[in-house]
Amino acid sequence: MTSHVEEIEEEEISKIEKGKGKDCHRGIETVICTSPTTVCLTQKLIAEMIGTYFLIFAGCGVVVVNVLYGGTVTFPGICVTWGLIVMVMIYSTGHISGAHFNPAVTLTFAVFRRFPWYQVPLYIGAQLTGSLLGSLTLKLMFHVTPAAYFGTIPSDSATQALAAEIIISFLLMFVISGVATDNRAVGELAGIAVGMTIMLNVFVAGPVSGASMNPARSLGPAIVMGVYDGLWIYIVGPLVGIMAGGFVYNLIRFTDKPLKELTRNGSFLRSASPKHKTSTSKS
C-alpha cells in the first residue's frame, strides 16, 4: 500500500516538473507551467533568494548579536560566521542555482558567457529580495541601535573603503572563477575555497569598509534601516573588482590551455621551426 502511494506521488511530481499537474478539486488535469524550463528557473530563483536571505540573516545577524550582547561573538567570530554561512549555502544550493547570491557575480558570469543574459535581472531580483527579507527579519527580531547597524559604512575615507572593496572583490571573483568555472579544478572544494576567501577578506577589510563584496549585502540593510552613507562604494567597488577578477582569471585560462595543447601534440615546436615546417610540408 505504501509503495503504491509513493508511486502515485512520484508520478504527480514528474507531471509537475513537465509542466502539468492535477486539479484535485475538479478531478481534471490542468497546466501549471508552460514548460519544464519555467519550473527549473523558478527553482533557481527560489534557491538564490533563500541563499541570500540566510547570508544576511547569519552574517549580518552575528554583527547585531555581537554589539547587543556585549561583544560575546568577537570580531574573529564574525569573520568565521561569514565564511561558514557562505560555504554552507554553496553546498546547499550550488547544484540548483549556482549559488551566486551576488548581483556582481551574476553580471560577470553573463559578461563572460557563462550565464544567460535573460536570467540576469531575475537572479538580481531574487538576490535583492532575499537581502531585503533577511534585513527585515533582523530589524523585527532585534532592537537595532545605531551602533548595531548591520549594513556597511566606511570607517575612514571613501577612497580607502573603495580601494578595499575593489581588491577583496577581485580576490573573491578570482577564486570563484578558479574553483567553480574551470573544469581542471577540484569542484567539490569550491564551497570551502570561496567560504575561506570570504573569511579572509572580512578579516582584512572588515574594519576598513565592512567587507561587503556584494551590492545585495549592502543594499538590503541600507534600504530597511534607511542608512545610505557611502552606499555607492558598495555598488561600484564590488562591480569593478569582481569584473576585473573574472577578466584576469579568464585571461590566464585562455593563454594556458592552447599552450598545453600545442605543446602536447608537437605543433608548437613545428611552428617555431621554419625548417622543420618546410620539410614536413614537402613530405
Rank of each mutant, 00 (worst) to 15 (best):
H25I: 15
H4G: 15
M141Y: 06
K257S: 14
F150R: 04
Y234L: 01
L45H: 07
N265W: 07
V144P: 11
L231V: 01
R253Y: 14
V67E: 08
I28Q: 13
D182V: 11
L136E: 04
I176D: 00
D256Q: 14
R264Q: 10
L259R: 10
S279K: 05
E29Q: 10
S218G: 01
R114A: 09
P154A: 04
M243Q: 05
C24H: 11
Y149S: 08
F109K: 08
T2S: 15
S135G: 06
K22L: 12
G226C: 03
L41H: 11
S283T: 14
I223K: 05
V204L: 05
S14W: 15
I32L: 15
Q160G: 13
S14T: 15
G226A: 09
L171M: 09
G241L: 02
V63Q: 06
Q43M: 15
R270L: 05
C24V: 10
V248N: 05
G70R: 11
T263S: 15
R26H: 15
I16W: 12
N250V: 15
S131Y: 02
A222C: 04
E165F: 00
V88Q: 12
H143S: 08
F268E: 08
V64A: 02
H276L: 05
I56N: 03
L259A: 09
I198A: 06
F150K: 05
S267E: 10
C40I: 13
M141H: 07
G77R: 04
G83P: 08
F150D: 12
G61Q: 09
I168Y: 04
